[in-house]
């Protein structure tokens, strides 16, 4: 299923509520439910906060593909290029208590909690894909 979220924190909160209410979401394990909500919150809030230089409304695409205890996620946005696989590498040791590096911390948490994380840039869009709960299906 596909959702379009505007680049505002209120929209992210609304997306979170809608997903939490889905029966497919309830079919995930407790760990996977946590990982999905955290991954969406971290990655989308990073796009909202750091992805744009203008004050215009932008759409962030969220595609969720549930298969029993697993889910595949695709996030797309037209913000500045940001590859979470190569960015924010310093997070583990930086641990900046002023919070300046906390955007990177969110990315680091996501990388630790999801599987098959892939990024590509296509026609001025960031496309991020990952899965959650697939390892437990084996």
């Amino acid at each position: 299923m596909y959702y379009s979220v505007c680049n505002q924190m209120e929209d992210l909160a609304e997306l979170d509520r809608r997903i939490a209410a889905m029966p497919e979401f309830s079919a995930l394990s407790g760990e996977s439910r946590y990982a999905l909500r955290l991954a969406l919150e971290e990655m989308i809030s990073n796009v909202i906060k750091y992805g744009y230089d203008d004050h215009a409304v932008h759409e962030i695409g969220v595609t969720l593909d549930f298969h029993g205890e697993a889910v595949r996620v695709r996030l797309t946005d037209d913000g500045r290029a940001f590859n979470p696989l190569t960015e924010a590498k310093k997070t583990r040791t930086a641990a900046d208590l002023n919070g300046q590096d906390i955007g990177g911390l969110g990315v680091f948490l996501v990388r630790s909690l999801v599987e098959n994380l892939k990024y590509r840039r296509e026609a001025d869009r960031n496309i991020l894909e990952f899965t959650i709960g697939e390892a437990s299906r084996k």
Partner: peptide
């Protein structure tokens, strides 16, 4: 019941 990096930041501050 739930903590994300924003919450971690609050704890650290």
């Amino acid at each position: 019941t739930y903590l994300s990096s924003a919450g971690l930041r609050s704890i650290l501050i």
